[in-house]
Write a protein that binds this DNA or RNA. Structure first.
Length: 833
RNA sequence: GCGGAUGUGGUGAAAUUGGUAGACACGCAAGAUUUAGGUUCUUGUGACGUGAGUCGUGGGGGUUCAAAUCCCUUCAUCCGCACCA
């Protein structure tokens, strides 16, 4: 029955169940013969509440999925939960519940909240990374990485987050602070597990080339910088009256004749050794460590050093003596932890030389002040004199190699990925430490014990009364489990392959993965540019090399959607105020419910603490899921930040209301089988073509704009067009609107008395002949300025266009003044006078 | 400091990649219907003239018959990295 009123509550309730039954079996993937399309939205952390950022992310993914399905692709569209991690453990510490219960109930809640939005997820494929099934498969991957030499244990300085009480990977330290806790990160010497991502530095870098065009340039640039390749030389300096050699990495071997000091990191082994001999050195090193992390010291950039009393032999100047310092600006974990200083051509070295009164020897000619960083001819450099930087570099490296004191060397900024975490709620590292046998792989699975106490200090797993005490699987003597768990980014590095067969006994079903991988489009936030997105690329290369699957690329294309932003408000005391608690007065003032003044603070990402969030639930209740979905993809391109605007949300609902009404009118007209024009058929084909192009490039805001245009065309011709023409136009319109607003479209489709469900329909066929216009509107310009337009048959001869133009402009210009007429077919005529 | 991006009406944004700038919306204004208001409909809406003319895509300069688009320069905002040798 057709009702005049667009009752979205009724309609959405009616179709909701059929939308949650989308499945695509692996047999169907196999039968697709490569015509598959894998849409992946980055899996959410089950915090318990769905927020607008999720809604935007998943709506974009769902529109793409539904569109691709209409085109006949076997669409793989799974969803799951990134369910290990700190918040569950913190909740347990605070409220006493168990992380497992907290997490699972959050997952249930979020699933319920997702349901009304009508996403076509294949829930058969659902995974939760904290499930025993998932993490025991992950343990197998870990052991394989270990056997392949890619997972290793090493004692080294690590980033310690004092709030989370655990170590962090380099990628998780932002400006010296923990990425989640925001706490000042400390350096600690610990024995930890790492993955050899550095083995793949070159491949990760060269792989960027293949992603260009399909990944945002920005993400690729960030990864490139993060990997930070630099080419140069390793020089081994001899130390006077010492048997050791001091090895130094430099990108500027050509400046060796300008070297006036060597500097060691305070953590360099020679520094540490000297510290045991001299209190002065020990004090200096202590100060460096204390001061190095404070904001102030970093800002001042002050160079401090202490002379070691040692000298190195200059490698190419006979009898040359170079003093060796320990300096605060030398990093232990880059290059070799030692540098040579050439003050004339490096800013840091210059500052240091000034402070400690060291010689500043220019070796590159320049009229500018020192330090001079640019290119130029070498001076004071014997055989290098006259050469430019590039020439001198390679000449010098050859020279070092011939003399046996150095060699060509490439260094990367990328460090190995530290994966141990001193936390309970994660995947246990399946390793047993035996005094006799050393590191021994544990029998799988290694399950988390449920009976843990969160009240104690430190890692609850380590504190468990008996969990860690086991017998060595090899020799049988008393041994200890590794009580650390894996970084949760480990889980998110391979989940998109587990989706493909979430019940497989092996971690990854190779047969299906070889068909379904790589993911065709991955949609998520840009905050993972050098975290998840780099780790996932690394995992693919490693898994490929271990024979898990053929693909070396996780995501063929990547869409980084922008944040959902909203105005935030503060009262005069600086407290945040909820937007729905404010009132705008007639004279432009903003007040809260108690009448006190409130100020617009800024426009920023929705967040709980700023009180500027909008609950998806609320707006679905008031406007319906279709309106919310449409609103999320209209107006703003997916990759840009989205400004929350309630008026535009109302606009989406208003549009759907109009669609409903116009459908009613067409429905009536069809009953009477009215006659009239059929020009709308052609118009429809023109739009079908344009809209498909917009969907293809995921320019969903443009697609929506064009859909609205087509709708306006239909609406304006309701009375003049024939019933058949209107029916064709409107049915096509419903099909192309469907990926955005599936509920209303399904309802209308059914009311058109269609037997087949709309979601099983295919994209309307485009008649190319009809889709191209017969007539075009051409512009007339005089000296490049618009002076009028005219309509003319498409692809008209230049002579026809010319005479038409002359006819129109002769009132304005004299024929003899015309110097030139430039004709651009179907576009523009420019008359030069 | 290094690297990257962006800059178009009151707002979100389009512009077939050098060819009619502002599509599609939001907002606003006037009017109509209803009327307690919202809803709905019509018209208008870059600026200045307000007679069909001029100006206009952050500013300045250039290339071109023609520039939001290409080049040079400058300013502003945002983001990433940051003592990386």
């Amino acid at each position: 029955m057709f009702s005049d009123i667009y009752d979205f509550r009724y309609i959405e309730q009616k179709w909701i169940e059929s939308f949650s039954r989308y499945t695509l079996s692996n047999d169907e993937i196999k039968r697709s013969k490569g015509k598959k399309y894998y849409v992946l939205e980055m899996l959410p952390y089950p915090s318990g509440k769905l927020h607008m950022g999720h809604v935007r992310n998943y709506t974009i993914g769902d529109v793409v999925s539904r569109y691709k399905k209409m085109l006949g692709f076997a669409v793989i569209h799974p969803m799951g939960w990134d369910s290990f991690g700190m918040p569950a453990e913190n909740a347990a510490i605070k409220d006493g519940g168990h992380p497992k219960l907290w997490t699972n109930s959050n997952i249930q809640n979020m699933k319920e909240q997702l349901k009304p939005l009508g996403y076509m997820y294949d829930w058969e494929r659902e995974i939760s990374t904290c499930s025993e099934d998932y993490y025991s498969k992950e343990q197998k991957i870990f052991l394989d990485l270990y056997k392949a030499g890619l997972a290793y244990r090493k004692k080294s300085y690590v980033n310690w987050d004092p709030v989370e009480q655990t170590v962090l990977a380099n990628e998780q330290v932002i400006n010296g602070k923990g990425w989640r806790s925001g706490a000042e990160v400390e350096k600690k010497m610990l024995d930890q597990w790492s993955l050899k991502i550095t083995d793949y530095a070159e491949e990760l870098l060269s792989g960027i080339e293949d992603l260009k065009g399909n990944w945002p340039e920005k993400v690729l640039k960030m990864q490139e910088n993060w990997i930070g390749k630099s080419e140069g030389a390793l020089i081994n300096f001899e130390i006077y009256e010492d048997l050791r050699k001091l090895s130094v990495f430099t990108t500027r071997p050509d400046t060796i004749f300008g070297a006036s000091f060597l500097a060691l990191s305070p953590d360099h082994e020679i520094s540490r050794e000297l510290a045991t001999l001299s209190k002065e050195v020990a004090d200096f090193i202590f100060c460096c460590k204390k001061g190095a992390t404070t904001e102030e010291a970093l800002e001042k950039n002050e160079k401090n050093g202490i002379f070691t009393g040692l000298h190195a032999k200059h490698p190419v100047i006979k009898g040359g003596k170079i003093p060796i310092y320990i300096a605060n600006f030398v990093l232990i974990d880059y290059g070799t932890g030692a540098v040579f200083g050439c003050p004339a051509h490096d800013e840091r070295d210059f500052d240091f030389a000034k402070k400690y009164d060291l010689p500043i020897i220019p070796v590159i000619e320049s009229k500018e002040d020192l330090p001079y960083i640019g290119d130029g001819g070498h001076i004071n450099s014997e055989y290098l004199n006259g050469m430019n930087i590039e020439e001198a570099k390679s000449y010098m490296i050859t020279q070092f190699e011939e003399l046996g004191i150095g060699q060509r060397r490439t260094t990367y900024r990328l460090r190995d990925w530290l994966i141990s975490r001193q936390r309970y709620w994660g995947c246990p590292i399946p390793i047993i430490h035996c005094k006799k046998c050393g590191i021994v792989p544990a029998d799988l699975p290694v399950l988390l014990p449920d009976d843990v106490n969160f009240n104690g200090k430190g890692n609850p797993l380590a504190n468990h009364p008996n969990w860690k005490y086991v017998k060595c699987p090899i020799c049988g003597i008393e041994a200890l489990r590794d009580t650390d768990t894996l970084d949760t980014f480990f889980e998110s590095s391979w989940y998109f392959m587990r989706y493909l067969d979430s019940k497989c006994d092996d971690p990854i079903n190779k047969e299906i993965s070889d068909i379904a991988m790589p993911v065709d489009i991955c949609i998520g936030g840009i905050e993972h540019a050098v975290l998840h997105l780099l780790y996932a690329r690394f995992f693919m290369l490693a898994l490929h090399d271990m024979g898990y699957l053929n693909s070396k690329i996780p995501f063929r294309s990547l869409l980084t959607q922008g944040m959902v932003c909203h105005k935030s408000y503060k009262d005069s005391d600086g407290n945040w105020v909820y937007p729905d608690e404010i009132v705008k007065t007639k004279d432009g003032k903003i007040i809260d419910r108690d009448g006190r003044n409130v100020f617009e603070f800024s426009f920023e990402k929705m967040s709980k603490s700023k009180k500027n969030t909008v609950s998806p639930q609320k707006i679905i209740d008031s406007h319906g899921a279709d309106a919310v979905r449409m609103f999320m993809v209209s107006d703003t391109p997916p990759e840009k930040d989205f400004d929350w605007n309630t008026d535009a949300l109302d606009g989406a609902l208003r549009f759907l209301n109009k669609v409903w009404k116009v459908f009613g009118k067409i429905h009536d007209k069809m009953k009477n089988d009215a006659s009239g024009d059929d020009s709308l058929i052609k118009t429809t084909h023109v739009y079908l073509k344009k809209i498909k192009t917009s969907y293809e490039s995921i320019s969903l805001n443009k697609a929506v704009a064009l859909i609205r245009e087509l709708f306006n065309e239909i609406e304006s011709r309701l009375s003049s067009e024939s019933a058949t023409s209107l029916k064709f136009a409107f049915e096509s319109f419903i099909k192309i609107l469907y990926p955005v607003t599936p509920y209303i479209c399904h309802e209308i489709w059914e009311l058109f008395k269609k037997k087949e469900l709309l979601q099983n329909e295919t994209w309307p066929e485009i008649d190319e002949a009809l889709a191209s216009a017969d007539f075009v509107n051409m512009a007339i310009q005089i000296n490049g300025k618009l002076r009028g337009t005219f309509e003319i048959e498409k692809d008209s001869e230049d002579s026809v266009i010319k005479s038409k133009t002359l006819e129109l402009i002769l009132g304005k210009v004299l024929e003899e003044d015309i110097k030139k007429i430039i004709i651009v077919k179907n576009r523009v005529v420019n008359v030069v006078v």
